[in-house]
């Protein structure tokens, strides 16, 4: 069993759980609705600030690691291989239209990945479950949502245990690409088979613990949905709807 991945520092501790979820979803929509290229880029900057304020700054670094290869690919694809007027930069010529497109896509990816990882790291399963229970959400749906988010850290910890176990049995994970690739099978196989073997036991336990019973769950110490939280959520959704209308009506 793994420790929960959530952090309860900064804004994440104070905000109502559905506010974080709303921000993550709204940013995903907004990334495609705001005018490119500077809209998505600004959204990315805003996402970085929000995630830092939430007290989960590590998500910014992780998002950067995920984004860098994507950005490089976008730059080559659109900036170097793109058509239209070119800007001569000495060593290479940059497509002006392509650079704009690459910037817009890079901003979208950056914003979505940063805000999603920030939400994931700030997510507190227990607070979320209590919040949605207080709102009368069905237990099946809430549990499925929470357990899905919670499965990843458990899987990562299991992988770490599996690596240690295989190391003690002489499997080497260092070396070149070939050596590492060869080590993947003895690592992944027990990991996947072990996870599958546990599915039955976990399903039995959860059924005995009334997860499948349906009906309303009693919230235990539900978090308060304050007016600033509600204001943030309403503002976000109104903005999304307004931008959708603007996009399709203009």
């Amino acid at each position: 069993m793994t420790a929960p991945a959530f952090s309860r520092q900064g804004l994440a501790r104070r905000a109502y759980p559905l506010t974080g979820l709303s921000v993550a979803i709204a940013v995903t929509f907004l990334a495609f609705l705001v005018p490119a290229p500077w809209g998505p880029v600004s959204l990315y900057v805003a996402s970085i600030i929000l995630v830092a304020l939430a007290g989960v700054g590590r998500a910014i670094r992780q998002a950067l690691v995920v984004c860098l290869p994507l950005w490089l690919f976008l730059f080559v694809l659109h900036g170097l291989l793109g058509g239209g007027p070119k800007i001569d930069l000495g060593l290479f010529a940059l497509s002006a239209d392509g650079a704009n497109a690459a910037l817009a896509q890079a901003g979208r990816f950056g914003a979505i990945i940063t805000i999603s990882l920030g939400f994931y790291r700030a997510f507190d399963p227990s607070r979320f479950l209590n919040a949605v229970a207080a709102r009368g959400w069905p237990m099946h749906f809430s549990y499925l949502f929470v357990a899905t988010l919670h499965a990843l850290p458990a899987f990562v910890q299991r992988a770490a245990t599996s690596i240690e176990a295989q190391r003690t049995r002489g499997l080497r994970f260092s070396g070149g690409v070939f050596g590492r690739t060869r080590a993947v099978v003895p690592l992944a196989l027990p990991l996947i088979l072990g996870a599958l073997a546990e599915v039955d036991d976990r399903a039995h336990a959860l059924e005995m613990r009334a997860v499948a019973k349906g009906g309303k769950r009693t919230p235990i110490d539900p978090p308060t949905d304050s007016w600033p939280d509600r204001a943030v959520r309403w503002t976000l959704w109104i903005t999304v709807v307004a931008l959708v209308v603007w996009r399709f009506v203009r």
Binding site: M1, P4, A154, E198, A205, R209
Partner: peptide, 12 residues
């Protein structure tokens, strides 16, 4: 197997 019988989502 106690670890498989936990809810997996309780904070405490």
């Amino acid at each position: 197997t106690p670890q498989l019988q936990l809810s997996g989502i309780a904070g405490t």
